[in-house]
Amino acid sequence: MDSLLDSLGPRYDDWPGPDPLPVDADMLPGIVHGYKPPFRIIPYGVRSSFGYKEGTALRRHAKVLPPHFALGRSRQHQGLAAAMLKLWERSSIAKIALKRGVQLTTSERMAEDIKVT
């Protein structure tokens, strides 16, 4: 896990939680040249969202994982999105935590900003 996180970007050293230290998402580049958002075609008859049981299983699995990224007030998330794509090649879950002390932000607002990217 440490070698994978080291390949994604610089670590956030002030993280108060347990090891491994998450990647500092604010230090990732804001704009990545040549970046294209992932485009997936869903086969016919497959739902585009998780069902209740699949979502519950993923949440239970993610609860015990340490976060992969620590995010502050950055508004440009192409570097974060590119790093998440690399992480999804090895893992089905990418966990993002907000840095402590960040004023006037919520996880819902950050999620909407990342979805736009």
Rank of each mutant, 00 (worst) to 15 (best):
L21V: 03
P10G: 04
I41Q: 13
I31S: 08
L80N: 08
D26H: 12
V64M: 13
I31R: 08
D113T: 12
K53Y: 15
S7P: 02
T56K: 15
G30V: 09
P22G: 01
D14F: 05
I93H: 14
Y52T: 07
V46I: 14
L58Y: 05
G9D: 05
W15M: 02
D19Y: 06
A70P: 03
S48M: 11
R109P: 04
Y35A: 05
P66W: 00
F69K: 00
L58F: 04
M110L: 14
V23Q: 01
K99D: 09
G34M: 10
L21N: 00
H61Y: 06
K53F: 07
Y44W: 09
P20N: 09
G72P: 08
F69C: 04
E54G: 03
P37C: 14
Y35N: 11
I93R: 13
G51H: 05
I114E: 03
P38N: 08
L58K: 04
L104E: 11
S48H: 10
T56N: 15
T106N: 10
Q103N: 03
K99W: 10
P67M: 02
D6L: 03
W15D: 07
R100F: 14
Y44L: 12
L85S: 06
G55Y: 10
I96W: 02
K63Q: 02
G9I: 04
L58T: 02
D24Y: 04
G79E: 03
Q78W: 02
K86C: 08
E54I: 09
R47A: 09
V116N: 14
P22Y: 01
T105M: 15
S74K: 05
P43L: 13
A82P: 10
T105Y: 06
H33D: 15
L80T: 05
A111Y: 12
W88A: 11
A111S: 11
P10E: 14
